[in-house]
Design a protein around this nucleic acid. Structure first.
Lengths: 141, 141
DNA sequence: TCTACTTCCTGTAGCAGCTACAGGAGCAAG
DNA sequence: CTTGCTCCTGTAGCTGCTACAGGAAGTAGA
């Protein structure tokens, strides 16, 4: 059994984040020592690592909770996982597309900044009325 | 002069968001009518539109505040704007790169889900120890 | 003028996913 | 026994909004 510090090291999850996950019911409450300290089994640490990896893949907590409950059922879980993963992939693709658009817009705006005039053409363009609107939902993460 | 509803329509900024910007000092406090309602000049609406466009480009509020103060100075602002825009571009590029990595990781993980076994290879892989770590800072927006 | 309806006001709380304290207690080493 | 580390709970903050509640102001029609 390991204290929260060791669990944090081994799972790569910040101590405060581990306690946060426990508060939010993402991971079950671990046992406690006589002095009231949290004690984690290797399995519980593996769960924390699993959560971190899913977070690294960009999955939101709510989906990760579904994953965790699916891992306990063992049967018929794969189709659901694949569906969730694919819709997440769609979101990632949409984000990439949006960022590419932003990239292009920013590049063309800042390119004008080299023209040596005192006023900034980029700020000017953003102030003016004729500027094309982006209004892309996914651009706000 | 326009009430907040018209200002919202013309700038594309949500009413609540306009009030939020005012509270946070992003935009100056507008004048008020006899009855205590906010009244916006076309210039103030242009500022709101400018803020929205910058947000659409993904600039954080703090940078937009710098932009707004630079537009008031008029001289020597362009170099600073370009620097800020370019570092923002770097961030966007980093985000795109990270998302591409996530995309590949997710694709290869969910591809295994077709093998017809009852247990899910994707969840299995995320549970196991040998899984390559991503640990990419920029992946969390 | 009365009434209904819309718009606006302030203030507060919530979202996600943490992170950062404050103020105290447990625990091991020297 | 003291130093120093880790841990505890509880609460507040971060970003950028959004969504109420409960009330006041303004507008339009009868």
């Amino acid at each position: 059994m390991f204290t929260i510090g060791k669990a944090s090291e081994q799972s790569g999850v910040n101590i405060e984040t581990i306690r946060y996950y426990e508060r939010e019911g993402v991971v079950p409450k671990p046992g406690r020592s006589a002095g009231g300290r949290r004690l984690y089994s290797p399995d519980e640490i593996a769960t924390l690592r699993f959560v971190r990896r899913c977070r690294d893949l960009g999955f939101p907590i709510s989906i990760i909770q579904t994953f965790l409950s699916l891992t306990k059922q063992s049967d018929r879980s794969c189709g659901e996982v694949k569906t969730l993963a694919e819709s997440h992939l769609d979101e990632i693709n949409a984000k990439i597309e949006n960022l590419e658009l932003l990239r292009k817009a920013l590049l063309s705006l800042s390119a004008n900044c080299d023209d040596g005039t005192a006023a900034c053409p980029m700020l000017d363009a953003l102030m003016k009325d004729g500027f094309g609107e982006l209004r892309s939902e996914q651009s706000r993460p």
